[in-house]
Write a protein that binds this DNA or RNA. Structure first.
Lengths: 200, 200
DNA sequence: AATATGAGGTGACAAATGTCATATTGTCAG
DNA sequence: CTGACAATATGACATTTGTCACCTCATATT
């Protein structure tokens, strides 16, 4: 019997997946969580065979949970299950050593199959991802990301200087560099691009 | 037997809801769609008793579909099912005369109950919404919304003038007014605010 | 000791943005 | 017809943004 844990903040999907996977004769859902923190704690305690993990969750996101599980040498296998084919996410998940990365874009039957494969030691990745998308790394340094996040909220250069203790010239230099790296024409477009790619 | 139609662009949730509701002894899922356009066509043809309708779908969103159904005097009842408690969405749904507005934040059992109530002529709304949130109307005119949408993508004033056939002064006046209405300090912050509230 | 390298900074400049007061024009109720 | 209104436009202005060349200083590297 495969022991499953599901972490997913959209309760409707969580309960739907729970009910349906429980109907499979060889699986049992032993726990659920709607936040990353909750999930981490429960997984360490319950040691499920496989965790289905959403990325965008409150408190701690699914990638952080996956990374932390590896750090604590958990035996549970992780399948990331997300809406987003964002290259940044995928790459980070692979680096964290997850056993699968699926998009919420397939049928559930596929999901059950995938779980069985992972239990048997295989790795599974949505084909949409592995093909072209992989090598698009986040070109932004951590500092640039931090600055762009603030700019995306509409903060002015001056406000950013105050939050980050930098001079206004420096902030403008950073933003100029960000705009150049992303091929944007102004900070707003840069923010729009980076958000779409999952880089900030 | 209640005849259901489900429109939802996240395939995993679509198929999960489909399977689970089909298990209910008094319901039958007679159709599914993953885009608004598809949904509209199928609903007009199949005339289901109840449609579950996501808002954010490609081609035509769920609210537009609901409005169009009313316009064509469809007999099918509509329950909006969405992640977002955005006041703008809710208000528009109510105006369109939908029979229910639920958040994807509850269990499926609740959903089945809600469907039965709607069939019996009741209306159901997630309590989170009706309480406080209602009276926050979208302060932006359609034109302002259109302009702000473009600005949110990082388009410059000049690019906006070309798309909308307005002079640059007019565009700047509009943006100035938008910024004022939203209490923002620049177009980027205005976009950020409007997006969060579901106004653009 | 000599030299990269990287984080942060200056100053100058052109362009874009935001504000405001003031037109022009067309539509529509009275 | 007239006056109110909405949509669009102008011009003038102060600020903010984006670009670029060059500076400083502390660590690493050789």
């Amino acid at each position: 019997m495969i022991r499953l844990f599901i972490a997913e903040d959209q309760r409707m999907l969580l309960s739907a997946l729970g009910s349906l996977l429980d109907l499979e004769t060889d699986m049992k859902v032993i726990g659920q969580a709607t936040s990353g923190e909750e999930a981490l704690k429960a997984i360490l305690e319950l040691e499920p065979d496989v965790c289905l993990m959403d990325i965008e969750m409150p408190v701690m996101n699914g990638l952080e949970v996956a990374e932390e599980l590896v750090r604590r040498s958990s035996v549970s296998k992780v399948i990331i299950l997300t809406t987003f084919a964002r290259p940044g996410y995928f790459e980070r998940a692979v680096k964290a050593g997850v056993q699968g990365y699926l998009l919420k874009d397939g049928e559930i039957d596929e999901l059950a199959d995938a779980i069985r494969k992972v239990v048997n030691g295989k790795r599974i990745f949505s084909p949409e991802l592995t093909v072209n998308v992989f090598r698009e790394e986040n070109p932004l340094t951590p500092k640039e990301q931090e600055i762009l996040k603030l700019a995306a909220l509409g903060k002015t250069t001056k406000e950013i200087t105050k939050e980050l203790y930098l001079s206004s010239g420096t902030v403008r230099n950073y933003i100029s560099e960000i705009i150049h790296k992303l091929g944007a024409k102004n900070r707003t477009e840069a923010a729009s691009i980076a958000e779409k790619k999952g880089w900030i």
